[in-house]
Design a protein around this nucleic acid. Sequence first.
RNA 1: GGACGAUUAGCUCAGUUGGUUAGAGCGUCUCGCUUACACCGAGAAGGUCGAAGGUUCGAGCCCUUCAUCGUCCACCA
Length: 906
Amino acid sequence: MAAEHRELPKAYDPKGVEGRIYEAWEGSGLFNPDNLPGERTEPFTIMMPPPNATGTLHIGHAMFLTLEDLMTRFHRMRGRAALWLPGTDHAAIATNTKVEKLLAKDGKTKYDLGRDGFIERVKEYIEGSRDTIRKQIRKMGSSCDWSREAFTFDEQRNRVVREMFVRMFNDGLIYRGYRIVNWCPRCESTLADDEVEYKEESTTLVYLKYGPFTVATTRPETKLGDTAVAVHPDDVRYKDMIGQTFEVDFGIGLQQIRVIADEGVDMEFGTGVVGITPAHSAVDFAMAERNQLPMKKVIGEDGKMTALAGKYAGLPVNEARAKLVKELKSKGLIEKEEEMSHKLSMCYRCNTAIEPLTSRQWFVDVNRPVESRRGKTLKEMSLEAVRGGGIRILPERFEKVYFNWMENLHDWCVSRQIWFGHRIPVWYCKSCYVEKGAPERVGDTSGYERAGQSGLITAVDAPETCPDCGGEIEQDVDTLDTWFSSGTWTFSTLGWPDDPKGDLKKFHPTQCLETGYDILFFWIARMILMTTYALDEVPFETVYLHGLVRDEEGRKMSKSLENIIDPLDVAEKYGTDAVRLSLTIGNSPGNDLRMSEDKIAYYRNFANKLWNISRFILLNVEGRPDGTKVPEPKTLADRWILGRLSAVITSVTADIEAYNFSRPGETLRDFTWNELADWYLEIAKVEGDKSEMLSYLLLNVLKLWHPFMPFVTEEIYQLAFSGDERDFLMVAEWPRPSESNLDGETNNGMILLQEAVVAARNIRSELGIEAGRKLDELFVRDDEVARRLTEQFKNIASLARFSQVSLSDSSSWMTAISGARTTTTSGGIQLAITIAGDNIDQSAIKEKKEKELEDARKYADTQHRKLDNADFVARAPAAVIETERRKLAEVEDRITKLEDQLKSLR
RNA sequence: GGACGAUUAGCUCAGUUGGUUAGAGCGUCUCGCUUACACCGAGAAGGUCGAAGGUUCGAGCCCUUCAUCGUCCACCA
């Protein structure tokens, strides 16, 4: 790919470049850490959060691909075994729902196809659609290792899921029990607590005559399942009633109601009396548990009233409610009705109202001690992983959110009734298994099924017959929560439990998990829980949480608002590098990012700027650029730019290491545009003889930019530097700062010269002096010019007093660039400085410096006193004393400088 | 009801242990097609850092209170 002639086209055209470059990268095999050159002992691993296999790329995906690719490319160039493992997610409920909708278009349901037929249909659908997302991931320039690509529903992941289930079951962490769950009548399945979303809605609060009480409710039909009423223990109105039992009749026969006291009751709300429906409210279920109440399930999984609802049996809940209210009204049992706003629980996938109900389901017990893990519970292990510093969450404030959630975690319902998903690896013997009945009272766990029960078989591989009696067996019909399999993502992708390739040993724990804060609970918490249990180590060392991408007005992007920015469209229009930069710069962990096409266009312009900088450099380098040698600086400008580059390398490297991506992008942009292009290249035009300098600068700038803008940098590298087909910028060595850092003298000198040039341009602009006129000539003849010069040069004059730099070195380029064509000479500037320096009012500067000196002395005194205080020195930690000493040294340094400056002002 | 975040130029935001004159990009206004780049260059205007107190030699940054906006969590039936 080495170039024959180096002249670049005038503008950068991403269209002709990106596909070709990506193919070359992928073909090189260098995305796979096993193929990277050199000895790579230290890994850097990121597991890609798997997008839905049936989805398409949206701007949120584009953002995480950009950030993860940035990290991967950076660490690859830093010499680490960089592994970024891609994959897709089967997203059980979401995919199931999608295919059901497709079927509905043809007027069919999943029952028409049957279970096996339906699963086949889902698999076909995924196969047909999965290549889309793969292509789109490539389009973003993602340097992930496709040879290790994983899918959450493939054979290996299925094996891991079965293995995990069996281990957890045998450790007593998984049980089957009859408890309250969130039920989606449309999905016909349970949902985890955090899969429920809440929507504000207005409903009617009905006040019912309820035996001796009046009870307010928004769900009258559930009152048919009441077994108690609760009052606050301190409520004087009802104190005497506590513990009594009475009967009510809502038209389906007498119901026995006990009066219980519970702190959870709000005396102010409604009548202060709550009807308790243990089978249909999580809150009531908890109260019932504390009071060992009986439960009565009046709503079934089909969303209709059960036989226990008497004459209402078979009616959908809404109809039952209307009918019941009507009848109670006619009996005069309704006291009043009022409108109120209420938070309705909804299925997060299909927006159907959730029906809480009791059901026989599989649960993960988060509070049971695990023997093989030092007697810790899942909850304790998950908390310690973060508390003990094994996992760091960025931004840090989310650690608190995580703790709060984890501390309040309830047992996790993992069984789902949807068809598509990992089948629960449990079999029941048709002859010797006896299903335990529903417990009569809430809180009674004797009806729960755990390991050891006869005829209940849990196995990684399907058994043929019942080991207890040799009888015929059948598998549990339920599937597992999709997060049960996603929770194993960091290790199921690396070969757990056998580790045939040694990947697990080499790459786990992973270094970073980068994802959105919106799935902290769904996914991150589950991964921590599953991994600490399975491997007894953390899944990742750092969690980087990015924010949401919003539109330029700060609104969420949505189809209905028509404000969606399609990353593929804009990548096509402006180039992938531009899209990536717009998603990197201005982005910080945990904060939402505003995105607009203008912003992307700006970075497109920048990519072109970089292209033209390269074009200019290549036109001005004699022979073939090398760029690997550190050049010997010949002039002030050379020393300055090398020092600046070195400083940029240091800060950019430190920032990326610290998971800071916006700032290094800005640092690089400022350096490239404002220092390299606007100053150094202009100077180079005049000073000439810069082949080595320019080659070195270009190569380093390309390397530094590569993780941010991989395509344009690689393209330039290929055209200018690449030695052979396997020589990619992608695997070039990351720049190291040179020995000679920018010294103060060079820096001050350059600032002085820059200010002088700016001042000269300024005067020209203000006075409208035409090109070609020399300021120094005008200076002696024209009072106005003299006055302006004096004014403009005040700063420069005071700066010049503290600088040793001679202007004569740099006179040629100053003359050339201080305005359009030729405007002035360094002699003129020198003259102006001299005159202005003598004319400016030094007393004001002096006064200010004196005040500063006074302050500094006071501060130094305070520091001295602090450090002389024996008590402080004895009690403060060493680090604090060190800091205080450093501060003292700094202020003393400042005092010396100020004293020097004041001397020269006299 | 709890917790957290934000508030800095017209707009979008930097500002990491408190330290010289608070920065950038966009937008606005002048000027300029100078052979790398008009997807460009030169220059300018624009800020009592949400409010009020406090700590300090010194506060955009630390403390207290308040205001507005936003997010998450929670058992008002």
